[in-house]
Write a protein that binds this DNA or RNA. Structure first.
Length: 524
RNA sequence: GGGCCUGUAGCUCAGUCAGGUGGAGCGACGGACUUUUAAUCCGUUGGUCGCGGGUUCGAACCCCGUCAGGCCCGCCA
C-alpha cells in the first residue's frame, strides 16, 4: 500500500473528519526541503478524500517566531536591530510589507502551482486575536505540572525562573527576557540590561515557547494529524513532550509521522541559513509541477532524498513520463484491492498507480488523458539543436507526430521550462551538446583518420543544410573502409567527444559550417 | 550517555507494521531496425537483503547485539 494510503487508513480508524496540520517558519526562502512537509500533508489529505473522509489541510505560518539571527542572505546593518522580534513585525528585505509575508508569497504561489489546497493560519495574527489566550492561561495555571513533564520527558532541568510564556519587551523583542511576576492577564519582566515593564498576554504581546505552542495549537485548531521533520523526532524532543502535554490543553495528541530531509546532492541538507537550497519556484521554473510532486510520491517520507537538480532530475522526469504512459496503458485499470486479497505483484502495481495519481496537480482524475510520449532527455537534445521554435516543432512532428500548426499546450509549456533549464546552472554537463575544443589524433586509427579527412574535404563543398549533409555523410561512408556504424561513432567521437549523439545532419546545421570545419582542420 | 531514521540488483527504490519460492524502474548486455535526434521495440542479465547471533517447520521481515551514514536530546523553532 502507498504510504499516504496507510496513513489515511490509520486516520479512518480514529474518525471521519480530520485536520492535517503543517507549519514552516518563514524565516528565509522556503525551499524544496520545506515543501516536502506541505506536499506530504497534501498527499495524505488526498488519500483521505479517496476513502471518503473529510480532511482539511491547514498551514500555520510561524510568523510570531522571533528572528533568531542575521542570516547570511540579510544585510547586517538593517537586520541586527531586529533580532529577537517577531517575523511579522519586521520589514521585508525589499522594503515593502513585512518580513514573513515576503517569504510566504512565493511559497504560496508555488503551492498553488503544485495543486495544494490549504487554509492559512497566521500565528502572529492568531496571538493578536487571542486564539492562544485560553491555552496560555492553562499553561500558566499548570506551570509546575508542565515544568515537571518537560523535565521528566526531555531529561533536562529547567531553571527556577522558567515561565511558560515569552513576553515581548518594550522594543518588541523576546530574546533574553525574564518573567518576574504574573497577574493575569499581565506579566512583569526584566531584560538582560535591566529594563523592566509589563505586557498584556490577551493583547498578544509575546508567545508560548515552542514546546507549548505546538500542543496548544493542536487543541485550538483541532489538529488530528501532523508530520514533523526528523529534528523533532528524538525521545525528549518537542514532539515527545508535546504528546505528554497535549492532554493538559484538553485534547488527545494528533497522529504523527516523521519525515526525512531533502539533501542537495553532494552539498548536504538543504538549509536556508546556509544558502544551500533550491527554492520551490526555482524548481518549477525548470520542470512541470507534477515532477515536483513525483519526487515525493515515489519515496516514503522516512527516506532521505538526495536531490540532484542535474542528471538526476532529467531521469526523474523521464521516469515520470514513462510511468504516465504505463498508467494509461494498464495501471489505470487495476483494481484497488485490499492487501489480503492481492498478490505482492498486484500490490506493487497498485503502488505504482498511486505514485502517479498522487503526483497529479488535479485533485481528481489525471492531468492528461495520455502521456506526451516525448522524453525530457529527448526534449533537452532537441531544444539545444533547434534554437528556432518552428524548427523544433517540425522536427518533433517528424519523429513524434506532433501537430505543428496547433501544438499541445503541455508540450509548449515543457519546452519553455526546458529552455530555462538549459540556460540555468543546474543543467548537467553530461547533457550539454557542445562541439569538441580540439581533436586528439592519436585516439584514431588509420582508417578512421582517412575517413575523417575525406569527410572534411567533402564538407567544404556541401551546401550546409540537413539534406545535403545527410547525403554527404552517406557518400563519404560508402567510399570509406569503415562500416556505417563505425563511421558514425568516429564522427561523434571526433566532433562531440562521445560515442553516440543526436542525429548528425541537423546537429551539424545547428553547429555551423565554419565552426565544424575549423575543428575538422585539426585532423590534417 | 540516551533516542530516531536509513542500509535490499551496478543505480533509484518497493517489500518489514501482518514471517511463507527476493520485486519494479533505470542501467548493462544481446537482437531487431540499417546508416542513430543519447531514439524505439523485443529479449537476457542481474542480489551474502550491511554484519553476527537468537526465536521459528520457515526470517529481508520478529528479538538481541554490532558496523556504517544522517539527525536529535536548548528558556530555538
Amino acid at each position: 500500500m502507498h504510504w499516504a494510503d496507510v496513513i489515511a487508513e490509520r486516520l479512518s480508524q480514529k474518525g471521519d473528519s480530520h485536520i492535517i496540520a503543517t507549519g514552516i517558519t518563514p524565516s528565509g526562502p522556503i525551499h524544496v526541503g520545506n515543501m516536502r512537509e506541505v506536499l506530504t500533508a497534501d498527499m495524505i489529505v488526498r488519500a483521505c478524500e479517496r476513502i471518503n473522509l473529510n480532511a482539511e489541510l491547514v498551514y500555520i505560518a510561524d510568523s510570531a517566531d522571533p528572528l533568531r539571527k542575521v542570516y547570511p542572505f540579510l544585510e547586517e546593518e538593517h537586520y541586527s536591530e531586529h533580532v529577537g522580534r517577531s517575523l511579522a513585525t519586521i520589514p521585508s528585505p525589499d522594503g515593502t510589507g513585512n518580513y514573513s509575508d515576503y517569504f510566504l508569497k512565493p511559497f504560496f504561489s508555488a503551492l498553488d502551482d503544485v495543486g495544494v489546497e490549504y487554509r492559512v493560519i497566521d500565528a502572529y495574527q492568531s496571538y493578536q486575536e487571542g486564539k492562544y489566550t485560553s491555552s496560555t492561561k492553562t499553561a500558566i495555571q499548570n506551570r509546575s505540572e508542565i515544568r515537571d513533564i518537560i523535565q521528566d520527558v526531555s531529561k533536562r532541568p529547567l531553571n527556577d525562573d522558567w515561565f511558560p510564556y515569552n513576553p515581548t519587551d518594550d522594543e518588541g523583542k523576546m530574546h533574553g527576557i525574564k518573567v518576574t511576576a504574573c497577574d493575569w492577564p499581565s506579566v512583569e519582566w526584566i531584560t538582560e540590561d535591566g529594563r523592566t515593564g509589563r505586557t498584556n498576554i490577551e493583547k498578544g504581546g509575546g508567545k508560548l515557547p515552542w514546546r507549548l505552542d505546538w500542543p496548544a495549537r493542536w487543541n485550538w485548531i483541532g489538529v488530528t494529524f501532523e508530520g514533523y521533520g526528523k529534528d523533532h523526532s528524538a525521545a525528549g524532543g518537542s514532539w515527545d513532550t508535546g504528546q505528554h502535554l497535549s492532554p493538559i490543553f484538553g485534547s488527545p495528541p494528533p497522529i504523527g509521522m516523521m519525515y526525512e530531509w531533502i539533501y542537495l546532492k553532494g552539498r548536504g541538507a538543504m538549509a536556508s541559513s546556509e544558502g544551500n537550497t533550491v527554492s520551490g519556484k526555482e524548481l518549477l521554473d525548470i520542470v512541470p509541477p507534477e515532477i515536483m510532486r513525483f519526487l515525493l510520491t515515489r519515496v516514503k517520507p522516512s527516506k532521505h532524498i538526495d536531490f540532484d537538480p542535474g542528471e538526476g532530475l532529467i531521469s526523474l522526469a523521464d521516469e515520470y513520463e514513462r510511468l504516465e504512459q504505463r498508467y494509461h496503458q494498464k495501471l489505470s485499470n487495476i483494481e484497488h484491492k485490499g492487501i489480503s486479497e492481492s498478490s505482492r505483484k498486484e500490490q506493487q502495481m497498485i503502488d505504482e498507480a498511486r505514485k502517479f495519481e498522487l503526483a497529479q496537480v488535479k485533485r481528481h482524475g489525471t492531468d492528461h488523458k495520455d502521456s506526451l510520449g516525448i522524453s525530457f532527455s529527448h526534449l533537452s537534445t532537441i531544444c539545444q539543436i533547434k534554437s528556432r521554435q518552428e524548427d523544433m516543432l517540425s522536427s518533433l512532428s517528424r519523429t513524434h507526430g506532433i501537430n505543428v500548426q496547433n501544438p499541445d499546450a503541455r508540450l509548449l509549456d515543457r519546452v519553455n521550462r526546458m529552455r530555462n533549464w538549459i540556460r540555468s546552472d543546474w543543467f548537467p554537463e553530461s547533457a550539454k551538446i557542445e562541439l569538441s575544443k580540439s581533436i586528439e589524433i592519436s585516439n584514431f586509427n588509420e582508417n578512421e583518420i582517412n575517413f575523417l579527412k575525406d569527410f572534411t574535404k567533402n564538407a567544404y563543398s556541401m551546401i550546409w543544410d540537413e539534406e545535403s549533409i545527410q547525403k554527404g555523410i552517406k557518400m563519404t561512408i560508402s567510399e570509406s573502409d569503415l562500416s556505417p556504424k563505425d563511421a558514425f561513432t568516429t564522427l561523434y567521437r571526433c566532433l562531440l567527444d562521445r560515442r553516440r549523439g543526436p542525429k548528425l545532419a541537423p546537429l551539424l546545421v545547428e553547429l555551423g559550417q565554419g565552426e565544424v570545419l575549423a575543428l575538422l582542420e585539426m585532423v590534417k
